[in-house]
Design a protein around this nucleic acid. Structure first.
Lengths: 203, 203
DNA sequence: GTTAGCATGTAAGGAGTTACATGATTTT
DNA sequence: AAAATCATGTAACTCCTTACATGCTAAC
């Protein structure tokens, strides 16, 4: 369903929205953004960039032609007007594909550039997606509980707990969004930066 | 590094260790075991099974030839002696590849069939892997903190917290293993079921 | 009797990694 | 001056998903 490429595309466009970058730099940021584990290979990044250039969504540019006389190209990519438009479209259209793990992370990372409605749609969609997961999870656990050894059981317990935890996190975020919608003077997720100092206890 | 196939192989062998199964049933169990999100397609499961048969690690067998006169095959797979051996080898050899997310989950799920040493090695390896992740994570967060909007920051915070949480979980498991090693009368992870009621406080 | 779930497969294609190849720049 | 890191690329290959094709069996 969710092609990795689409996620990659969105992420690249989003990162370039902030500032022009080298492919190399882009890859580092991407690695940090996309999933906390795997990193993206050049073998898939550079072709993807070339494709975005071909489609006119980003543009290559030499940063300083007078200085860099090197034969070896050093390309800085920047977003074109079309690219900006495309990005805005992608991020606000966000369908069910955006509820999945990786796409959700990327969409969330660019929440600051979306409208409140889209944010709400994605947060609630993600929540329902997790709720589904919990349901099937619990059902299968219920059926097979007896046959499982303590390790498998512990693994399931931990997995279940992680998902439940994310649901609670989403609930908080949804609350913040709702408050922000009702009272526009408050910024969304005001708590995070506002209470940073006070809540430094390790929980 | 870690080919998905290897993980799949280990998981299939491990599941068949318990009881013979249809490919269909296998897929369901596998989906529950491997990652809490994606499910495995038949397009990759059946060829993988055929390959394991070819290598003599599992065997196909008709469950009841006299009754099922259907032309359509209904295959039950079971582990061969070679398969058992191979599985034991795979699970006890466990190198650094087993510290990664999916492989770790699968290895952990079959902990009951490993020796204490292997368990310890995997748990500690996983822990160090996560610790590395935390380090790079924190470093990049430190460098870019100022430029991040509240959403990105919140995402990072949540990601960081999840990893920290898993580290604490691992610490508990490691403790249990150590106790079990010192005092063999206690079963590993005895605490999970034993102290469930007492430790219900939300931390 | 027909829908839903059980059950097995294959062919085509896409997505991304690996491995390789090259060279510039900065740090030690 | 060597080592590390920055920087860009490509070709081969592997794995996996998608989409399709088939047929049984239980429930409604």
């Amino acid at each position: 369903m969710t092609k990795r490429t689409e996620v990659l595309e969105l992420a690249v466009l989003g990162l370039l929205h902030d500032s022009p970058m080298h492919g190399y730099e882009l890859r580092k940021q991407l690695t940090a953004l996309l999933g906390w584990g795997r990193s993206l290979s050049y073998g898939s990044l550079y072709p993807a960039l070339k494709d975005l250039v071909r489609r006119g969504l980003i543009a290559e540019s030499a940063p300083d032609p007078t200085v860099g006389r090197s034969r070896r190209a050093k390309i800085v990519y920047e977003l074109t007007a079309d690219g900006k438009e495309h990005f805005t479209g992608l991020i606000s259209q966000a369908g069910p594909a955006a509820w999945e793990d990786e796409p959700f992370g990327v969409h969330f990372a660019f929440f600051a550039r979306t409208d409140a409605e889209t944010r709400m749609r994605i947060l609630e969609g993600r929540r329902s997606r997790l709720e589904e997961r919990l349901a099937t999870f619990r059902a299968s656990l219920h059926k097979t509980r007896e046959r499982l050894d303590s390790y498998t059981l512990e693994l399931q317990r931990h997995g279940l707990e992680s998902v439940e935890r994310e649901v609670r996190w989403l609930d908080e975020l949804i609350d913040h969004e709702r408050q922000a919608a009702g009272d526009t003077r408050r910024s969304p997720i005001a708590g995070t930066s506002g209470t940073k100092k006070k809540e430094e206890q390790p929980s």
